[in-house]
Design a protein around this nucleic acid. Structure first.
Length: 988
DNA sequence: TACATACAC
DNA sequence: TATGGTGTATGTA
């Protein structure tokens, strides 16, 4: 390691004069590196593992240094820094923190991993190594044969993107070291800040320690998205199938375009250079563009945008309208949307002056420089008429640039146009494959480009001394692992190919082999379909279960919103938990039927969290982050079909004299409301006469909506599958034990379920459901009721693969108006004590006792529920009723929760409203009550973070609203409301 | 499938 | 005072 002379920590740029050659040699002292002498001659020679690793460990212990926290200088603008000094500052700022401790722990894990690998290595025999080498070399031959140098792949990367946008929009920032982000985390930094060691992924407070003058600018993602869109519009002209990797970088393939390029006239390749004085105009235009374009540009949306381009088909047309119109249009240009530009008709012989070239020209690619300068000629100043009248003014300083037909020229043109359009610079790499192009784009950053010529020799020359850390996909852990094998460069990687083959997985070693041969993907592929969607948040410590559940609910709501936007539903819910010690855990549960509503997701997520809370017990589960992810999406075709599965659709079908049963939805048809979900629960659940209040409300709703009496084939299928799944029949292994602990012995009280919080209300066993369904005959009143529910819920029919979840995910019900619904004004649970009990059930399910779970009140409630059901039946909510319900839905309806009367054009609308009422206001209310009563004296953190968090996300109007809704609920008689609801329907 | 890890941006 | 959020891939059991 190059130890720079020690200096005082004055706040100057922190760098050393000489280049540090020895990067981060984690695993061993340089002197022991195998590669130094013999390693290149013998591909099979490796260092002794124990020597290496233990030495490294000692080193770490002695210095109590956590190398993984060291500055990663593998970034443009961070060359030659005094890493020693910077790392010292970082370490001092971090030492003793939980983060630091965790990093230490993780580093130790990596070391152990390396040790294992080295043990494995030590056991390899020479013949094994030789055999591996033979095998690998065969692969090498194949790979060589398939080497494709014909593609011209470009990786374009905006320079310090977020920071650049901020600097552009606030020139005062240009002279200062600045970073985008906050004290918590930085997204990116400008080059001035990088000289101090301040970089992306560094917490702001450390950035401040490294550079006290550092200016922190909060991110403005809308702006970045808008700029990104502008850039993509340009890229799409060159490759409609370009592949954006993030807001600031993209791959594209110029191969086809270059064919056409050769046939393009000089005019078509000529662009006006817009000088600094023009910026105001551009700025104005940009602003309106930003406004317009500041919409979401998620992956999906991006795709559709780009598809728009791609499908426009006529590339030539697009291309011939090639210049950035933004440069020539007047400020008042109507829609402000910057479209692709217009080529100026400029005589080819008019030569143009080089565009302003800021940025680092010193390190610009020699190739680029030599070629481009030759074509960048001075243009005599003259007036230029904008023939297409897109400019509006004559330009006194009009200068033009005609770009050539080589790929370097095209890329330069693209960067030029990007700069003209956005006033931001980009760097690019050109190579025969993506892997190389990506590395190249970093080579001459900022504002430069670099090309690897498409010959094997050039590729291998480039690769030869390349640090493996430069390769995308090789991070610090892999770097350490490989370093332990004496591998730092791509040449090393090739030399040790036999070892990597023996010591790493097939996937990894194959990847390494590709890298070491300079091979990579030769086609630019769009991202495939999204595989998951998640929301996660970091917060001040939360350990109180009620707050954890509340946070979980927030996340589920946020996630459900996002899912809705993209019309996605999935079958696996994963909860991510990060403890205050930065330990990350994930817990997942898969269903057979996709879900997407916040209630459904919450039901599962909550259960997973509860399990964790219990696992920690009696210690609290102390979290600093929680995340909820949904994955295992069903494919798009199914998705579109699933939309049929709404209640309305069922009604519609019914009404149109469709002879098919009321409930035809397929298992993947889900647009469940809370109530529906709960219901399906009861079908799947162990049985349950437990029925906490929540259900009842759901049931009521369902009765209102789908009071059907018959169940037929489609339901049968679903329910059967549910039963086949064994849901509710038996637990296995420790899950069972756990449940038994909580529940009161499933034999005795099979209805009792561990989570009672909102436990299933309908008293039916799985078997009975099964029977009733399969018989498809007239059902008893209880069965009928259940069947009706089933009918309403087929699309939700939560078939649970994991019995553990069968309980919970089926009970997303919130406790609030449960009682109200059950017993109305004369609510059996109207006492404060009862209410608190319900709160407890929701937010402290882990605290419930058997007796709490299974009690007389619940039975009474269930009885009532069943009565209601039979009442409904006797009121002839038969098949006819469907249409009457539907008719009702067209009219004014009163929400049974908030008593608001509104016209609902769809039942779904009403359903959603009810969900909103139930969830959004009441959960807060309950939480508030819960907290104020149970925790007010015990935890000050609660007052700090709890309420704030509750209101932190997408629930802006919930605060006062919830309290008002609470009053309404308690004053009004929900039960009567519900009956009113029925009544009204009846009367009609 | 569940979970942990690694990685990128 | 204080170390992110989102998504993908992979290895292992």
């Amino acid at each position: 390691m190059n130890t720079p002379p020690s200096r005082g920590l004055d706040w100057k740029e922190i760098h050393v004069d000489e280049e540090e050659e020895d990067d981060e040699n984690w695993a061993m002292p340089a002197s022991t590196l195998p590669g130094q002498a013999g390693h290149f001659t013998s591909p099979l020679s490796v260092p002794s593992s124990h020597q290496i690793i233990s030495g490294n460990k000692d080193l770490q212990l002695d210095n109590s240094r956590v190398s993984s926290m060291d500055l990663n200088t593998n970034k443009a603008g961070m060359e030659g820094l005094d890493k020693e000094k910077i790392n010292k500052i970082i370490m001092e700022a971090s030492k003793g923190s939980r983060f630091y401790d965790n990093q230490k722990k993780r580093e130790k894990q990596t070391t152990e991993r390396i040790n294992k690998m080295m043990e494995k290595l030590a056991q390899l025999t020479e013949s094994e190594k030789q055999a591996a080498l033979t095998q690998v070399d065969e692969m090498v031959r194949d790979l060589e044969l398939s080497r494709d140098l014909s593609r011209i792949i470009v990786h374009l990367d905006m320079d310090m993107f977020y920071a650049a946008v901020e600097m552009r929009d606030d020139p005062e920032l240009q002279e200062k070291p600045m970073a985008v982000g906050g004290m918590g985390m930085l997204s990116t930094s400008n080059y001035k800040a990088r000289r101090f060691g301040v970089r992306a992924a560094m917490p702001g407070f450390i950035g401040k320690k490294l550079c006290p003058e550092l200016v922190l600018v909060p991110p403005h993602f809308d702006k970045y998205r808008a700029v990104s869109k502008q850039v993509r519009e340009i890229l799409a002209e060159y490759d409609p199938n370009f592949c954006p990797m993030s807001l600031d970088e993209a791959y594209f393939d110029l191969t086809e375009y270059l064919e056409r390029r050769r046939r393009m006239s000089a005019e078509e390749r000529t662009y006006l250079y817009c000088s600094a004085e023009d910026h105001g105009q551009v700025e104005d235009e940009k602003k309106s563009t930003s406004d317009k374009a500041a919409n979401n540009v998620s992956i999906q949306e991006r795709t559709s945008d780009e598809d728009g381009y791609g499908s426009s088909g006529d590339y030539q047309h697009q291309s011939s309208s090639g210049v950035d119109r933004s440069l020539f249009t007047s400020v008042s240009k109507k829609q402000g949307e910057v479209t692709s530009g217009k080529v100026l008709s400029v005589p080819a012989e008019i030569q143009v002056k080089s565009p302003r070239r800021h940025g680092n020209t010193n390190n610009a690619s020699s190739l680029e420089d030599s070629r481009s300068e030759a074509e960048w000629d001075e243009q005599p100043e003259q007036d230029v008429e904008d023939e297409d009248n897109t400019c509006g003014t004559k330009r006194q300083d009009g200068r033009f640039e005609t770009f050539g037909v080589t790929c370097e020229e095209v890329v330069r043109e693209i960067r030029f146009r990007i700069e003209q359009k956005t006033k931001l610079t980009a760097s690019a790499g050109i190579a025969p494959n993506c892997m190389l192009a990506k590395i190249c784009s970093d080579k001459n950053k900022p504002n430069g480009q670099y090309r690897i010529q498409p010959s094997r020799e050039d590729v291998m020359d480039f690769i030869r001394d390349l640090s493996i850390r430069k390769i995308s996909g090789i991070g610090k852990v892999t770097e350490r692992m490989l370093s332990a094998l004496g591998i730092q460069t791509c040449t090393d990687l090739y030399q040790q190919r036999a070892l990597s083959y023996l010591l790493f997985s097939q996937t990894s070693s194959s990847h390494f082999l590709h890298i070491s041969l300079g091979l990579g993907s030769t086609h630019v592929e769009r991202d495939g379909e999204r595989k998951s969607m998640s929301t996660e948040r970091t917060f001040k410590e939360i350990s109180i279960p009620s707050e954890l559940y509340s946070k979980c609910m927030e996340l589920c709501e946020a996630l459900a919103e996002d899912l809705k936007k993209e019309q996605i539903q999935g079958k696996t819910v994963t909860v991510k938990l990060k403890t205050v010690n930065f330990e990350v855990k994930s817990r997942a549960s898969s269903l057979k039927v996709p879900v997407r509503s916040s209630q459904e997701i919450f039901a599962i997520a909550r259960d997973l969290i509860r399990t964790e809370i219990r696992a920690c017990h009696p210690q609290p589960l102390r979290l600093r982050l929680m995340g909820v992810r949904l994955s295992s999406f069903q494919d798009a075709s199914k998705l579109s079909r699933s939309r049929q599965g709404t209640i309305l659709d069922m009604f519609a079908k019914k009404q149109s004299n469709n002879p098919q049963p009321v409930t035809t939805p397929t298992p993947d048809c889900t647009e469940p409301t809370m109530g529906l979900l709960e219901e399906s629960t009861s079908n799947n659940s162990f049985s349950g006469s437990v029925g906490t209040p929540g259900e009842v409300s759901d049931v009521s709703r369902i009765q209102v909506l789908v009071p059907n009496t018959k169940v037929s084939a489609p339901d049968t299928e679903i329910l059967t599958s549910d039963t086949e799944d064994g849901v509710g029949v038996s637990f296995d292994n420790k899950e069972r034990v756990e449940k038994k602990d909580v529940v009161s012995g499933s034999k005795k009280a099979p209805e009792a379920r561990d989570s009672t919080q909102s436990a299933v209300g309908v008293g039916v066993s799985v078997n009975r459901v099964d029977r009733s369904v399969s018989s498809d005959t007239e059902l008893s009143s209880e069965q009928t009721f259940e069947s009706a529910i089933t009918a309403a819920n087929v699309r939700t029919s939560m078939t649970i693969s994991n019995p553990h979840h069968s309980q919970s995910h089926l009970e997303p019900r919130l406790p609030f108006c449960e009682d109200d619904f059950v017993s109305g004004r004369e609510n059996e649970h109207s006492s404060i004590a009862d209410r608190e009990e319900h709160t407890k059930q929701l937010y402290h399910p882990e605290l419930l006792s058997k007796s709490e779970i299974f009690n007389q009140e619940n039975n009474q409630r269930v009885d009532k529920l069943l009565k209601m059901n039979s009442h409904a039946k006797s009121d002839e909510y038969g098949s006819e009723c469907t249409s009457s319900v539907e008719a009702e839905a067209q009219r004014m309806l009163t929400c049974p929760i908030c008593r608001q009367e509104r016209a609902y054009s769809t039942l779904e609308g009403l359903n959603q409203h009810i969900d909103a009422c139930l969830n959004k206001s009441a959960i807060k209310e309950m939480l508030h009550r819960d907290k104020s009563r149970s925790f007010s004296s015990s935890n000050n953190q609660l007052t700090k973070s709890g309420p704030k968090k509750l209101h932190s996300r997408k629930r802006s109007n919930s605060g006062s609203g919830s309290s008002s809704s609470k009053k309404k609920r308690s004053k009004s008689t929900p039960c009567r409301t519900l009956y009113d609801f029925f009544q009204k329907k009846d009367n009609h």
